[in-house]
Simulated assay, not measured.
Amino acid sequence: MASQLNGKVALVTGGSSGIGLATAKRFAAEGAIVYITGRKQDALDKAVAEIGGKVVAIRADSSIVADLERVYATIRDKSGRLDVLFANAGIAAFVPLPAITEEHYDSIVDTNLKGVVFTVKYAVPLLSEGASIILTSSTAGYKGMEAFSVYSATKAAIRQLARGWLLDLKAKKIRVNVISPGMVDTPAIDGLVGDPNAAAGMKAHVASQIPLGRIAQPGDIAAVAVFLSSDEAAYINGVELPVDGGASQI
Protein backbone atom coordinates (compact mmCIF):
# COMPACT_ATOMS: atom_id res chain seq x y z
CA MET A 1 0.00 0.00 0.00
CA ALA A 2 1.32 3.45 -0.93
CA SER A 3 2.33 5.79 1.88
CA GLN A 4 -0.27 8.53 2.31
CA LEU A 5 2.18 11.35 3.04
CA ASN A 6 5.14 10.35 0.92
CA GLY A 7 7.43 13.33 0.35
CA LYS A 8 5.30 15.81 2.31
CA VAL A 9 6.89 18.14 4.86
CA ALA A 10 5.03 18.27 8.17
CA LEU A 11 5.31 20.17 11.43
CA VAL A 12 3.80 18.87 14.67
CA THR A 13 3.89 21.27 17.60
CA GLY A 14 3.88 19.60 20.98
CA GLY A 15 5.35 16.59 19.23
CA SER A 16 7.39 15.09 22.06
CA SER A 17 4.56 13.32 23.90
CA GLY A 18 0.95 12.20 23.79
CA ILE A 19 -1.11 13.00 20.70
CA GLY A 20 1.73 14.94 19.08
CA LEU A 21 4.23 12.12 19.44
CA ALA A 22 1.79 9.50 18.15
CA THR A 23 0.99 11.71 15.16
CA ALA A 24 4.63 12.42 14.38
CA LYS A 25 5.27 8.66 14.39
CA ARG A 26 2.42 8.07 11.95
CA PHE A 27 3.47 10.96 9.71
CA ALA A 28 7.00 9.58 9.53
CA ALA A 29 5.72 6.06 8.88
CA GLU A 30 3.59 7.43 6.04
CA GLY A 31 6.65 8.91 4.35
CA ALA A 32 6.65 12.52 5.56
CA ILE A 33 9.63 14.62 6.58
CA VAL A 34 8.59 15.54 10.11
CA TYR A 35 9.54 18.49 12.29
CA ILE A 36 8.48 18.41 15.93
CA THR A 37 8.62 21.04 18.64
CA GLY A 38 8.51 20.86 22.41
CA ARG A 39 9.74 22.73 25.45
CA LYS A 40 12.07 20.08 26.89
CA GLN A 41 15.18 18.96 25.04
CA ASP A 42 15.40 15.59 26.80
CA ALA A 43 11.81 14.75 25.79
CA LEU A 44 12.53 15.82 22.22
CA ASP A 45 15.65 13.64 22.06
CA LYS A 46 13.66 10.65 23.30
CA ALA A 47 10.90 11.36 20.80
CA VAL A 48 13.32 11.48 17.87
CA ALA A 49 14.60 8.03 18.81
CA GLU A 50 11.02 6.71 18.99
CA ILE A 51 9.78 8.30 15.78
CA GLY A 52 12.54 7.18 13.45
CA GLY A 53 12.45 8.13 9.78
CA LYS A 54 13.13 11.68 8.68
CA VAL A 55 12.52 13.74 11.81
CA VAL A 56 13.98 16.99 13.10
CA ALA A 57 13.35 18.22 16.64
CA ILE A 58 13.39 21.92 17.49
CA ARG A 59 13.14 23.06 21.09
CA ALA A 60 10.54 25.81 21.15
CA ASP A 61 7.72 27.21 23.26
CA SER A 62 4.66 27.88 21.09
CA SER A 63 3.62 30.79 23.28
CA ILE A 64 6.84 32.68 22.41
CA VAL A 65 6.80 34.34 18.99
CA ALA A 66 10.58 34.45 18.70
CA ASP A 67 10.70 30.68 19.16
CA LEU A 68 8.14 30.20 16.39
CA GLU A 69 10.09 32.45 14.04
CA ARG A 70 13.16 30.30 14.71
CA VAL A 71 11.19 27.11 14.01
CA TYR A 72 10.08 28.35 10.62
CA ALA A 73 13.53 29.66 9.76
CA THR A 74 14.84 26.14 10.34
CA ILE A 75 12.13 24.56 8.18
CA ARG A 76 12.73 27.13 5.43
CA ASP A 77 16.47 26.47 5.44
CA LYS A 78 16.19 22.67 5.53
CA SER A 79 13.08 21.96 3.44
CA GLY A 80 11.94 25.19 1.81
CA ARG A 81 8.23 24.55 2.29
CA LEU A 82 5.56 23.10 4.56
CA ASP A 83 2.72 20.84 3.39
CA VAL A 84 1.14 19.85 6.71
CA LEU A 85 0.84 21.86 9.91
CA PHE A 86 -0.56 20.17 13.01
CA ALA A 87 -0.94 22.95 15.59
CA ASN A 88 -1.28 20.65 18.54
CA ALA A 89 0.68 22.13 21.46
CA GLY A 90 -1.51 22.89 24.46
CA ILE A 91 -1.74 22.80 28.24
CA ALA A 92 -4.55 22.32 30.73
CA ALA A 93 -5.28 22.78 34.42
CA PHE A 94 -8.30 22.29 36.66
CA VAL A 95 -9.03 25.63 38.35
CA PRO A 96 -12.54 26.59 39.58
CA LEU A 97 -13.78 30.12 38.95
CA PRO A 98 -13.06 31.52 42.46
CA ALA A 99 -9.46 30.30 42.20
CA ILE A 100 -8.65 31.64 38.72
CA THR A 101 -5.61 33.90 38.80
CA GLU A 102 -4.06 36.13 36.18
CA GLU A 103 -1.13 33.71 36.03
CA HIS A 104 -3.43 30.75 35.32
CA TYR A 105 -5.35 32.69 32.68
CA ASP A 106 -2.20 33.93 30.93
CA SER A 107 -0.52 30.52 30.90
CA ILE A 108 -3.51 28.74 29.34
CA VAL A 109 -4.41 31.48 26.86
CA ASP A 110 -0.82 32.17 25.82
CA THR A 111 -0.21 28.54 24.86
CA ASN A 112 -3.62 27.35 23.70
CA LEU A 113 -4.82 30.45 21.85
CA LYS A 114 -2.00 32.91 21.23
CA GLY A 115 0.32 30.01 20.49
CA VAL A 116 -2.01 28.58 17.86
CA VAL A 117 -2.64 31.97 16.24
CA PHE A 118 1.04 32.71 15.76
CA THR A 119 1.97 29.11 14.93
CA VAL A 120 -0.33 29.38 11.93
CA LYS A 121 0.46 33.03 11.07
CA TYR A 122 4.19 32.43 10.76
CA ALA A 123 3.66 29.22 8.80
CA VAL A 124 1.76 30.92 6.00
CA PRO A 125 4.75 32.02 3.85
CA LEU A 126 6.00 28.42 3.83
CA LEU A 127 2.69 26.66 3.20
CA SER A 128 2.41 25.06 -0.22
CA GLU A 129 -0.69 25.37 -2.37
CA GLY A 130 -3.24 22.84 -1.14
CA ALA A 131 -1.51 22.44 2.23
CA SER A 132 -3.37 21.03 5.22
CA ILE A 133 -3.65 22.79 8.57
CA ILE A 134 -5.04 20.81 11.49
CA LEU A 135 -5.86 22.44 14.81
CA THR A 136 -6.28 20.50 18.05
CA SER A 137 -9.40 21.56 19.92
CA SER A 138 -11.35 19.44 22.42
CA THR A 139 -14.88 18.30 23.14
CA ALA A 140 -14.45 20.51 26.21
CA GLY A 141 -14.85 23.41 23.79
CA TYR A 142 -18.60 22.85 23.55
CA LYS A 143 -19.46 21.16 26.86
CA GLY A 144 -19.55 22.66 30.32
CA MET A 145 -16.93 21.13 32.61
CA GLU A 146 -16.36 21.98 36.24
CA ALA A 147 -13.13 23.85 37.03
CA PHE A 148 -12.16 23.83 33.35
CA SER A 149 -13.60 27.09 32.07
CA VAL A 150 -10.47 28.88 30.82
CA TYR A 151 -9.14 25.80 29.05
CA SER A 152 -12.56 25.12 27.51
CA ALA A 153 -12.84 28.71 26.29
CA THR A 154 -9.53 28.48 24.45
CA LYS A 155 -10.62 25.28 22.76
CA ALA A 156 -13.94 26.81 21.71
CA ALA A 157 -12.01 29.69 20.15
CA ILE A 158 -9.94 27.26 18.07
CA ARG A 159 -13.09 26.25 16.21
CA GLN A 160 -13.82 29.83 15.22
CA LEU A 161 -10.24 30.46 14.12
CA ALA A 162 -10.60 27.63 11.60
CA ARG A 163 -13.73 29.19 10.10
CA GLY A 164 -11.96 32.48 9.52
CA TRP A 165 -8.67 31.06 8.33
CA LEU A 166 -10.08 28.83 5.62
CA LEU A 167 -11.36 32.05 4.03
CA ASP A 168 -8.11 33.94 4.62
CA LEU A 169 -6.17 31.13 2.93
CA LYS A 170 -8.56 30.15 0.15
CA ALA A 171 -6.40 31.72 -2.58
CA LYS A 172 -3.79 29.01 -1.97
CA LYS A 173 -6.46 26.29 -1.54
CA ILE A 174 -5.16 25.61 1.97
CA ARG A 175 -7.51 23.48 4.06
CA VAL A 176 -8.08 24.18 7.75
CA ASN A 177 -9.72 21.49 9.86
CA VAL A 178 -10.18 20.85 13.57
CA ILE A 179 -9.84 17.65 15.58
CA SER A 180 -11.70 17.65 18.90
CA PRO A 181 -10.66 14.68 21.03
CA GLY A 182 -12.47 13.59 24.13
CA MET A 183 -10.33 12.22 26.94
CA VAL A 184 -7.12 10.67 25.64
CA ASP A 185 -4.87 8.37 27.66
CA THR A 186 -1.74 10.53 27.73
CA PRO A 187 0.83 11.56 30.35
CA ALA A 188 -0.83 14.98 30.35
CA ILE A 189 -4.03 13.48 31.79
CA ASP A 190 -2.08 11.86 34.60
CA GLY A 191 -0.29 15.15 35.27
CA LEU A 192 -3.56 17.06 35.20
CA VAL A 193 -4.99 15.01 38.05
CA GLY A 194 -1.76 14.46 39.95
CA ASP A 195 -2.59 11.36 41.96
CA PRO A 196 -2.23 8.14 39.88
CA ASN A 197 -5.13 6.42 41.64
CA ALA A 198 -7.40 9.41 41.11
CA ALA A 199 -6.37 9.58 37.45
CA ALA A 200 -7.17 5.89 36.96
CA GLY A 201 -10.54 6.39 38.61
CA MET A 202 -11.35 9.36 36.40
CA LYS A 203 -10.40 7.46 33.26
CA ALA A 204 -12.57 4.51 34.27
CA HIS A 205 -15.53 6.78 35.00
CA VAL A 206 -15.23 8.60 31.68
CA ALA A 207 -14.83 5.30 29.80
CA SER A 208 -18.08 4.06 31.34
CA GLN A 209 -19.91 6.99 29.71
CA ILE A 210 -18.52 6.39 26.21
CA PRO A 211 -20.48 4.19 23.77
CA LEU A 212 -17.30 2.41 22.66
CA GLY A 213 -16.47 1.65 26.30
CA ARG A 214 -12.98 3.13 26.45
CA ILE A 215 -11.14 6.43 26.33
CA ALA A 216 -9.02 7.22 23.29
CA GLN A 217 -5.43 6.23 22.79
CA PRO A 218 -3.09 8.77 21.14
CA GLY A 219 -3.00 6.61 18.03
CA ASP A 220 -6.74 7.06 17.56
CA ILE A 221 -6.20 10.78 17.13
CA ALA A 222 -3.07 10.32 15.02
CA ALA A 223 -5.01 8.21 12.51
CA VAL A 224 -7.46 11.06 11.97
CA ALA A 225 -4.63 13.57 11.58
CA VAL A 226 -3.04 11.38 8.89
CA PHE A 227 -6.32 11.23 6.99
CA LEU A 228 -6.91 15.00 7.15
CA SER A 229 -3.32 15.58 5.99
CA SER A 230 -3.59 13.25 3.02
CA ASP A 231 -4.90 13.73 -0.48
CA GLU A 232 -7.82 11.48 0.49
CA ALA A 233 -9.19 14.47 2.42
CA ALA A 234 -8.60 16.97 -0.38
CA TYR A 235 -12.23 18.17 -0.33
CA ILE A 236 -12.63 18.32 3.44
CA ASN A 237 -12.31 21.88 4.66
CA GLY A 238 -13.48 23.71 7.77
CA VAL A 239 -14.84 20.71 9.65
CA GLU A 240 -14.63 20.01 13.35
CA LEU A 241 -14.31 16.28 13.86
CA PRO A 242 -15.06 14.94 17.36
CA VAL A 243 -12.89 11.90 18.09
CA ASP A 244 -14.46 10.73 21.33
CA GLY A 245 -16.00 7.32 20.78
CA GLY A 246 -19.44 8.86 20.35
CA ALA A 247 -19.63 10.51 23.79
CA SER A 248 -20.59 13.93 22.44
CA GLN A 249 -23.51 12.48 20.47
CA ILE A 250 -25.50 11.16 23.41
Rank of each mutant, 00 (worst) to 15 (best):
I91G: 03
V117D: 02
G38P: 03
A123M: 06
F118M: 09
A24I: 02
D110F: 07
L68K: 04
A57P: 06
A92E: 10
F118I: 06
A99Y: 15
I91R: 10
G52P: 07
T37S: 08
S79E: 02
E102T: 13
R76P: 01
F118S: 00
K40Y: 14
V84I: 14
P125L: 08
G53I: 08
I33Q: 11
T23F: 04
P98G: 07
V55N: 05
F86I: 13
V117H: 11
K40E: 13
V95H: 10
G52A: 13
G90K: 03
Q41H: 09
A73Q: 15
F86D: 00
A57K: 13
F27R: 01
I58H: 04
V124H: 01
T111A: 08
V84E: 01
A49G: 12
I100H: 13
N88D: 13
V48A: 11
K40M: 12
D67W: 12
V71D: 00
T37V: 07
S63T: 04
K54E: 15
R26N: 07
Y105I: 12
K40P: 06
E103V: 12
L82A: 00
R39Y: 05
A87L: 05
E102R: 12
R59E: 14
P96I: 08
A43M: 14
A89P: 02
G80S: 06
K25T: 04
E50K: 15
P96W: 13
D106T: 14
L44H: 01
A60Q: 05
N112G: 05
E50T: 15
G90S: 10
L68M: 11
L113N: 03
R76Y: 12
T74Q: 12
Q41W: 08
V55A: 02
I58V: 14
I58F: 00
R70W: 09
V120H: 04
K114S: 00
L97I: 15
P96F: 12
I51A: 05
S63W: 04
E30V: 00
I108G: 01
D61M: 08
D42Q: 15
R81Y: 08
S79K: 11
G38A: 09
V117P: 01
D110K: 14
A57F: 02
I58N: 00
L85S: 01
I58Q: 01
